[in-house]
């Protein structure tokens, strides 16, 4: 059987933040023992609030940050003991498309150079082949080849995000890590980009790690949906059974909180839960959980397989 495209095992990451010019510092635990894997052609969508560790997870999956504990595997190979050449070969297979399409494109490069640079480094120094590949990809992401001669600031947000996708595809990747790829975009443009990502995935058998705080975005693209709360993966559920299964209390709350603009106004939710920051040794969701019991104060539940299509970290589901 094929090895998973990405596997991460028991990842922990803590940041030490200095304040008052370094006189004081405090710790932020961004990830607490997260494990997950993505098979070829699969999309894992990750939901979670701002600051829960989603971007940290993306950086670790990309090998841009080193975890304090735990291991990352690309195509079955641990990043810990890769030699330089293998790393370089695999590195090209794992590409990123990030939230802000402007800051992720070098403002002094023409789009031509933005696209060719990774090609020269990873595929071949042949300029003619590179250009024809760039033209083919621009065509696929719905851009006119005249953008090759433009600079990033001359393009709109949606166009820049298309360039970022084309750049990632220049090196024939197998996994794309997408961190909030559409949250900087207008909803009319967001819809175009999502549609495009779906088409590209099918055409190239790509796998995605898709990070977003939008339920509809994740629902549109993902095969598996993961939910992170304060650095912990509290649920992993296959989309096919998402609607009919019972979920982790936090997932339930997320679903109920989604404001559907087309619902009749009387059924908008009234949700009141406690608002305390996390401090306890128990479950990460303890302070806000409406169904907690005695057990929940003692330890943080680990992710347990409920069925082939669902994993949950909760003592009471």
């Amino acid at each position: 059987m094929n090895k998973p495209v990405l596997e991460i095992k028991n990842i922990w990451k803590t940041y030490h933040v200095k304040v008052l010019g370094g006189l004081k510092s405090y710790e932020v635990v961004a990830l607490r023992g997260i494990s997950l894997k993505i098979e070829k052609g699969e999309v894992l969508g990750i939901l979670g609030e701002s600051g829960c560790g989603k971007s940290t997870l993306a950086k670790i999956a990309l090998g841009l940050e080193t975890p304090d504990k735990g291991e990352v595997f690309w195509f079955g190979k641990s990043l810990k003991n890769l030699n330089g050449n293998t790393y370089k070969a695999l590195r090209a297979k794992v590409q990123a498309v990030l939230q802000d399409p402007y800051s992720s494109l070098n403002p002094r490069y023409k789009i031509k150079d933005v696209l060719l640079e990774p090609y020269f480094i990873n595929i071949s120094p042949d300029k003619k082949e590179g250009l024809s590949k760039a033209q083919e990809l621009l065509n696929q992401v719905g851009l006119d080849i005249s953008v090759l001669e433009k600079y990033p600031h001359e393009l709109s947000g949606g166009q820049r995000q298309r360039v970022a996708l084309a750049r990632a595809l220049m090196v024939n990747p197998e996994l794309l890590v997408l961190d909030e790829p559409t949250s900087a975009l207008d909803v009319t443009i967001q819809a175009q980009i999502l549609e495009l990502m779906k088409t590209l995935k099918e055409r190239y058998q790509l796998s995605y790690l898709l990070i977003s705080h939008s339920l509809p975005v994740v629902f549109y693209l993902a095969d598996w949906i993961g939910v992170i709360y304060l650095g912990t993966l509290v649920e992993l559920c296959h989309k096919s059974s998402f609607k009919r299964l019972k979920h982790h209390p936090y997932t339930e709350l997320l679903i109920r909180s989604y404001l559907d603009p087309f619902a009749p106004s009387q059924i908008f939710p009234e949700i009141e839960v406690e608002l305390n920051p996390p401090i306890s040794d128990g479950c990460v969701f303890l302070d806000r959980c409406p169904v907690k019991t005695k057990d929940c104060y003692k330890t943080n539940p680990s992710l347990v397989k409920k069925t082939d299509l669902q994993y949950i970290a909760c003592f009471n589901v």
Binding site: G158, Q159, V187, A191, F219
Partner: peptide, 30 residues
């Protein structure tokens, strides 16, 4: 929300995901 008149408002409302689907307004560009 029920009777948007301006073509931009119509595109905005139509491209909102409904039942997990997005309707794509193809003419893009801010």
């Amino acid at each position: 929300f029920l009777t948007p008149l301006h073509p931009y408002t119509q595109a905005l409302i139509n491209s909102y995901p409904k039942e997990g689907k997005f309707k794509v307004d193809l003419k893009g560009g801010v």
